[in-house]
Amino acid sequence: MAQQSSTRLYVMDGVTGSTVLALIGVLLGTAGTLVGQYLATHVEVQRDRRQRTDTERAERKEAILAFLAAAQRVELILDRQELGLPTTEDPADEKLHDLWLAKKAVELTCAHETAQAAHDYTRALHTRMRNTAASEQSPAKREYRYAFMEVARNALESGRPTIRR
């Protein structure tokens, strides 16, 4: 009888051992799945964050380039006036309107510092366009353009050094 009970214990130990091993396998599998899901989610969140950052940067860049194009058209009219050349056939009022509209796009998509620099540059160009004589007290349009360009470069996170003048 003693021998029979030890065999039963051995069989139960074998069943218990395989059950424990199976449970350990299930636990390891579950832990592996959870870790895998966490890592996949973490990577997806980073990818989404990067995509949003890239999209926002592209919007800022588009607004800045549109503003610069409008400012360049106004500067062309001013330069032609200063040189005594005939102005283009496009009315100056339309160019000023386009400039103010482009400035508003910068205000909507860029940080305060960039929006303020765009506003200052627009105001200087507007003043110069309306008053044919440049005021000696106000900084030149080139100063405002330079200030805007540096702020815009920072807004686009170019990482490049400032432009020497």
Score class of each variant (00 low, 15 high):
M1F: 11
A2W: 12
A2T: 14
S6W: 01
S6H: 11
T7A: 14
L9C: 15
Y10V: 13
Y10Q: 06
Y10I: 02
V11E: 06
G17A: 08
S18K: 12
S18Q: 09
S18I: 07
T19N: 05
L21V: 15
A22W: 07
G25A: 05
V26T: 12
V26G: 09
L27P: 06
L27I: 01
L27A: 14
L27R: 09
L28C: 14
G29E: 06
T30Q: 14
T30C: 03
T33P: 02
A40M: 09
A40N: 10
V43L: 04
R47S: 10
R49D: 13
R50M: 01
R52N: 15
T53E: 15
D54M: 11
T55D: 11
T55C: 00
E56V: 10
A58G: 07
A58W: 13
R60A: 14
R60T: 03
K61C: 12
K61G: 02
E62F: 09
A63F: 05
I64S: 00
L65F: 11
F67M: 03
L68R: 01
A69R: 03
Q72G: 12
R73G: 01
V74S: 00
E75L: 04
L76N: 10
L76R: 10
I77A: 12
I77E: 10
L78F: 01
D79S: 02
Q81P: 01
L85F: 07
P86E: 05
P86T: 08
P86R: 02
T87R: 05
T88N: 02
T88Q: 03
E89R: 09
P91N: 07
P91Q: 04
A92H: 00
E94T: 08
E94Q: 11
H97M: 03
H97A: 10
L99E: 00
L99V: 07
L101I: 00
K104R: 12
K104L: 11
E107I: 00
E107D: 11
L108Q: 13
T109C: 14
C110D: 03
A111Y: 10
E113M: 00
A117Y: 01
A117S: 13
H119N: 12
D120A: 14
D120S: 05
Y121E: 00
T122R: 01
A124P: 05
T127G: 04
R130K: 13
R130P: 04
T132P: 04
A133M: 15
A134I: 15
S135G: 01
E136Q: 02
E136A: 14
P139Q: 06
P139S: 01
A140K: 04
K141S: 14
K141D: 02
R142Y: 02
Y144N: 02
R145C: 00
R145F: 07
Y146E: 05
Y146V: 01
Y146K: 08
Y146I: 07
A147S: 09
A147L: 06
A147H: 09
A147E: 06
F148V: 03
F148L: 15
M149T: 12
V151H: 04
V151C: 07
V151N: 05
A152R: 04
L156F: 06
S158W: 06
S158D: 07
P161I: 07
T162L: 12
T162W: 08
I163G: 02
R164W: 10
R164S: 05
